[in-house]
Every structure is written in structure tokens, then in C-alpha cells.
């Protein structure tokens, strides 16, 4: 075979292959775009959440149901565990909000964390600065007592194993008296007693 003939043969073959491939390239771009259009974009978590919570997306009901069910499971597990951890399965009944009594006074709770203390008491102008003992029946280091007080301003301090402590974190303000701190609480202010 001559070289010229071989060249011609190769050229014709290549032309035929290019023509076939070119046919495949027709509308290739449109087809790619169409394919991409069927796919959802990758969303960030907050975008996903906003879509999930969007009220108009009725189709998201299933996802909401999944989230709700997960929350319910966590709640159930949490309550079960708390019932096992807390003795008697009941939440503590302590409340920092004063409780209104029938005579117009308020049952005011005094609380002090004192982990290694043996004796804790509160003194103030409501008990003529004579000690009222706090108790810690469950031994968790949280000492409490409730004292019925009429609305007004009260000055007080704690005594922990004989040492005075006048800076109660629950106080409304602090003053210095005889060179030491005392705590102040306003009872009955706006009905909150804080």
C-alpha cells in the first residue's frame, strides 16, 4: 500500500469519527443543565432548619414529625433519669420567690451553699440579730430556712461556723455596718419580694 492511500484512509476514518462525536455534542450543554436542574442544592443546617420550619412547606411535615419524635424521646429519657436521680422521683419544692401567707406576711427563703459547714444561721433585723438556724437535711451543702416576714427592707448576714458572711448572692444590695458587710433584701416590692 502506498503512503498516500494510507493517509487518505486514516483521514476518512477520523472525519467519520469526528462527525459521529459532533452529533453527540449537539444540545450537550442544555442536557447538562436539565440534569442539574433535577438536583437539590446542598443546604447549610440553618437553611435546612428554616425550610423545615417554614409554615408554607406542607411537604416538610414528615421532617417535623421526626424532629418532634426525637424531642419526645429525649424528654422521656430525661424524665426517667431525673426520677432515678432525685429521691422519691419528685422535684425539689424550694422556691426563691417568697410565698404569700394568709396574714399578709411572706415566707422568705434564705439559702446558703456551705459545703463543709457544721452550723449555719442567719441574723438580721427581723430576729433582733439573734441566730435562726439553717438546716441541710440531705447533706448536699445547701443550707436553707424560711422566715415569715412582713413587706419591708431587711438587713441580715449569715454566720457559718461562727464566721460572719454578709454578702448573700441573693441580696438586693449590700451595706457596710460596723466595718463589715451586711446584705439587704426588699420584701413585697412589686409583689415579687426580691
Amino acid at each position: 500500500m502506498k503512503h498516500d492511500n494510507l493517509d487518505n484512509l486514516l483521514r476518512d476514518t477520523l472525519k467519520a469519527e469526528v462527525a459521529t462525536s459532533a452529533e453527540r455534542l449537539i444540545e450537550f450543554e442544555e442536557r447538562v443543565i436539565m440534569k442539574l436542574g433535577d438536583r437539590h442544592p446542598r443546604l447549610r443546617w440553618f437553611q435546612w432548619l428554616s425550610q423545615l420550619l417554614a409554615p408554607t412547606r406542607g411537604t416538610r411535615f414528615g421532617q417535623v414529625a421526626i424532629v418532634g419524635a426525637t424531642a419526645a424521646i429525649f424528654l422521656f429519657v430525661g424524665l426517667t433519669l431525673s426520677n432515678r436521680i432525685l429521691p422519691g422521683g419528685e422535684a425539689p419544692k424550694l422556691s426563691l420567690q417568697p410565698v404569700m401567707l394568709a396574714d399578709g406576711n411572706q415566707e422568705v427563703l434564705f439559702v446558703l451553699p456551705a459545703l463543709d459547714a457544721q452550723d449555719v444561721a442567719v441574723v438580721g433585723n427581723f430576729n433582733a440579730w439573734e441566730e435562726t438556724a439553717l438546716s441541710d437535711p440531705d447533706g448536699d451543702g445547701i443550707w436553707t430556712t424560711s422566715i415569715p416576714l412582713s413587706p419591708g427592707r431587711y438587713e441580715y448576714a449569715f454566720i457559718i461556723d461562727g464566721r460572719w458572711w454578709g454578702q448573700d448572692p441573693l441580696a438586693d444590695e449590700y451595706i457596710q455596718s460596723f466595718g463589715e458587710y451586711s446584705s439587704i433584701r426588699y420584701i413585697g416590692r412589686g409583689g415579687d419580694g426580691a
Binding site: V123, N125, A128, W129, S177, F178, E180, S182
Partner: peptide, 20 residues
């Protein structure tokens, strides 16, 4: 009276209480 009670409870000397 309240100030006197507080001073006595804090073991403040009576002279200081009287001054206050």
C-alpha cells in the same frame, strides 16, 4: 435599737456602738 442589737451580735465594743 436595731443598730445596738447588730453591734452586740457582732461583738463590737460598747464604746464603738455608743459612738455609732
Amino acid at each position: 435599737i436595731n443598730e445596738a442589737f447588730e453591734g452586740l451580735a457582732r461583738d463590737v465594743p460598747l464604746q464603738h456602738i455608743e459612738r455609732g
